[in-house]
Amino acid sequence: MEEAVFQEVADLALQGSGQLIPHSRAYLVEARLAPILRREGFSEVGELMACLKARPNSKLQSETLAALTSKQTSFFRDKEMLERIAGHLLPMLAESAGEEPLRIWCAGGAAGHEAYSLAIMLEESEDLRDHPVEILSTDISEKSTNAARAGKFNHFDVQKGLSIHRLLRHFSRLETGEWQVSQTLAKRVAVRTHNLLHDASGLGEFDIILCRNVISGMAQSARAKVLLNLARQLNDGGVLVLGQGESATGMVDGLEPSREMRGAFTRKVARNDLSTAAA
């Protein structure tokens, strides 16, 4: 790939999804765009970029942006954190919510691994099973959200992070060899396609927002924008959980470390008073 083409791709990613693609990862661009090139009959990335320039804001552009993002994830990724949510945070929030449903948002949730992991923990918890909890999984990639909605996972996916007991209890095997999440899990999880750079008020407000291993791949200005968008959707007392090594400290005025959970953040001011620290 020529330098000029790489730069065009990097600019597109930065503006469209906030993703920062360093030179050292140029090889990823070709690998991630290969399926689109094949499908569209392009022989190189430059042809795809020329096409996108001629027709900006097309479906092909959103597909290209989505394809550039990482899809790497697994069930029960960072198990300890999920256990703290299910064992401590959710029971506490459930108590104060009374009969009201709790809402959880897996932001940048790829094919739904995190959302279904949470749904499994709710099913397995005597205290939480009967409390209404809505889980929303969103991703920028329509391909990923379609996969999450279908709830089908391949042989390799279901063997990473899932014990065989959990697999047998919560999934059933299809003729194709794939494993389908149970109706019970599927009912707990809603799925939407959403770009985290965009306003999220249409998704409603949440008691827990998980946005893990998403902002670390973004440019600084995009991080601040995403964190602001997420913080605005937090309920009073709601908690934002980022990935290991990711922090919101100093990024958004009014968003501060949570006292309830280490490494998590909470909104300390009214929604409208939140602002990016740089602004």
Partner: peptide
């Protein structure tokens, strides 16, 4: 535990 073949290193480690 139960591993479904074919497996890779990540699966064995996870299991």
């Amino acid at each position: 535990e139960f591993i479904m073949k074919p497996f890779d290193a990540d699966i064995i480690q996870s299991k």
